[in-house]
Amino acid sequence: MPVFKKTILASSIFTLAFGAAAMAQMDYSAQIAARQGQMDIMALNVGILGNMARGNTGYDADLAQAAADNIFAAASVGHQIAWPAGSDNFDLGDATAALPAVWDDPDGFDQAWGDLRTAAAGMAEVAGTGLDAVQGAIRPLGGACGGCHRNFRQSDD
């Protein structure tokens, strides 16, 4: 009987250890590259609008509209595929800035994406109509970015 128990114990430990190793070896590099690319697309296009809003570049209605449409499209890519559980910076370290809160608070994360789509739609509606409109819509857009990064992204400082 004690031998049996020991065998159970040993196999449990083996399973746990092997399981943990298997988890650690899951390769999420494609998902992380995809979502970081999604962020890069948004940053590139926000830069077009932001530089116009700040007066660093001249206002161009067609370019502003194209950038706003791109942001809305990138914000509309569903996040369930590129954000698998276990791909956070607690498990994976510096490979990602995604905090475990993304998976601990899925409703909050969904809400944050919803807020981004709302702000991006607001920008896309007006970006081609004039500089004032871009300057008005950039702040809610920045607020939506910050609203998500506040709780779900590791600060880089």
């Binding site: 926000v46 809003a53 702040r139 910050g146 990064h149 600060s155």
Partner: peptide, 28 residues
């Protein structure tokens, strides 16, 4: 100076990354 003032309003750094962490709330 213009970049700092704009960042405090829209939360975008000069290279259009966004504020995160506690600072995002300060900007709110």
């Amino acid at each position: 100076e213009a970049d700092i003032a704009a960042y405090l309003g829209d939360g975008f750094t000069p290279d259009f990354d966004s504020a995160g962490g506690e600072m995002a709330e300060v900007i709110t």
